[in-house]
Simulated scan of single mutants.
Amino acid sequence: MRIIKFLVVFLLILVGVGYGLYYFGTNFASQKIAEETVTNFKSTGQMETVKSYVENDPVLAGYMEEAKAADKDSLPFTTTNEATRVLIQKVGLSELNDIKTKVETGTMAPQEVIQELETKLTEEELLALKVIAYNELYSEQ
C-alpha cells in the first residue's frame, strides 16, 4: 500500500513538473522569439522593406485595413508575446521554423503562409495577428 501511495504522489509531482516546464518553456520561448524578431527587423532596417511590400500588395494591404478597423477589445490576445505563444501552441515551433525557412528561400509566398495559418487558427486569432502586425508596422509613424 505504501508503494502505491508513493507511486501516485511521485506521478502527480512528475506531471506537475512536466506541465510547469511546458508552460514556462513555451512562455519563455515565445517572449524570446517575439523580442528577437521585432528587434532584428527594426535594427536592420527591414521594417521599411516590409512596410513597402505590404502596402504594394493589395491582399496584404487589405489585411492591414481590416486590422485598422478591428474592435481591439474583442481580440483573444493583444501583444506579440501572447501571439507568439498561441502560434507555438497551435502551429508548433518546428512547423513555424519550417514556414520561416520556406519564406526565406522563396519557396512559400505570404499568401501561402496565411492559408496555412487559416487552417490552424480561428478567425478571431487571425484578426488579432493582423492587428498586432499592423501595430508593429505602423507604431513608429
Rank of each mutant, 00 (worst) to 15 (best):
E104M: 15
K90T: 01
T119F: 10
G18Q: 00
L12Q: 02
L60W: 08
A29W: 04
I33L: 12
E116Q: 13
E82P: 04
E116N: 13
I3Y: 14
K72T: 14
G62S: 03
R85Q: 13
I99G: 05
A70L: 04
K32A: 09
V15F: 14
E55D: 11
G18C: 03
K100Y: 11
V8Y: 01
L137Y: 08
G92E: 05
N97L: 13
I132R: 02
M1Q: 01
E136G: 04
E116L: 12
V131F: 09
T26E: 11
A69G: 04
D57H: 06
F41D: 05
V131H: 03
T78E: 12
V91I: 13
L87F: 11
L75H: 10
A34S: 13
V50L: 15
V54F: 10
Q111R: 09
N56E: 14
V8N: 00
N97R: 12
V9M: 07
L12T: 13
M108T: 02
S74Y: 00
F41N: 01
K68Q: 10
K5Q: 04
L14V: 11
K32G: 00
V50R: 05
Y19F: 11
L126R: 11
L93I: 14
Y23W: 05
V54D: 08
E123I: 02
T80I: 10
G106W: 07
G92C: 07
Y22V: 11
Q31H: 12
L129Q: 03
I3C: 01
P58D: 11
T39P: 01
T78M: 03
G16A: 05
A67F: 01
I132F: 08
G45D: 00
Y134E: 12
K120N: 01
I4V: 14
L11G: 08
N97E: 10
L21K: 00
T44M: 03
L75T: 06
N56M: 07
I132S: 00
V86L: 05
L60G: 03
L93N: 08
V86N: 00
Y63Q: 07
K102I: 10
N40G: 03
Y138N: 03
K100A: 15
Y138Q: 02
Y22M: 09
K68N: 02
F10R: 03
K42N: 10
I33G: 04
T26G: 01
E116T: 15
A109L: 14
G25I: 05
V38W: 01
K90D: 08
E36N: 14
T105F: 00
E140S: 13
V131M: 09
L11I: 15
L96Y: 01
Q89N: 14
T44I: 00
R2M: 09
V50E: 08
G92Q: 02
A61Y: 07
S94T: 08
K72L: 05
P58E: 12
F41W: 12
K130A: 12
E35N: 03
S30A: 15
V113M: 07
S52M: 14
L87T: 07
K120I: 04
I3K: 14
V8L: 15
E125M: 10
K5A: 04
